[in-house]
Amino acid sequence: MITKEATVAAPAPAPAAPAPPRLAKKRPAWDEVPRWQVYLPLGVYLVFTLVPFYWILLFSLRPAGSTSLVPWPMTFEHFEKVWTERSFGTYFGNSVLVGLATLVMTTAVALAGGYALARFDFKVKRVFMLALLCSQFVPGALLLVPLFEIFAELRMLNSLGSVIIAETVFQLPLSMILISNFIKNVPYSLEEAAWVDGCGRLRAFRIVVLPLLRPGLIAVGSFAFVHSWNHFLFALMFLNNQSKQTIPVGLNTLMSADSVDLGALAAGGIIAAVPVVIVFAFIQKWLITGFSAGAVKG
């Protein structure tokens, strides 16, 4: 299924089967890329990519103390332990909440702002665009201290709200630039036609523009989710209460223990990886089309 999607995404010859002969016909024989030049480097790189994944899977499934290179006999004791004893169940819930809230907030706020940037000329637009670009250079990690103070002032320390806001804010600039580029790619005349047909601006946007933005919004939204799911320092800094912490913080706790429980660490890592890997498998196609539509080209 993934294979099919990727082939459609590329503007290359549509059906996969007749493609090689067509290529061969077009190119002189001496100039065709030999198959081994594709498969060999790809294979080598795949080994580099997959061995670490296999390694963590292996450690999470084989009994503690085993040195076997295959996870057999298989055990789920590490998962049970990490999920209950090490509270990864709680962390998982918190991370899901943070990820989804960040996704919704980032997409909604960036959609509104991106629409304004794409469709209107207004006084502070240039300043605002400049601010968006400059904010790319402001490292979240370096603003830990003042952000900590702000959330302390707002009495939001130890609540997931602080992390959600911080993640959203640092996702916003890039998301907004991307979305405004996506919107610019939708001809304004389509919207105007809808107004003539009696739609309000909002309705016209909803039925004409929004469907066309789908790949872009999926890319931006999943970006926001994956980033906030993965990000570590804000949660580490703002959440002290163990019941409020997120998965990356939990992983860090496992790693910084005096004697690291490798099986538990591996199982925790798998739990951390599963949602993003699923998200990634779904968005892979949109990621590439979405980016080529709006990311790099102005």
């Binding site: 999607e5 990727a6 790189y45 790693m255 890592g269 951390a272």
Partner: peptide, 27 residues
Amino acid sequence: GRGLGRALVFSPWAVSGVLTSAIWVLL
């Protein structure tokens, strides 16, 4: 197998810094 190949070689992109550490600590 291009689609599958792409998905596999791109997959570490989605993995967090902390999880990357966890994996490489094990390795």
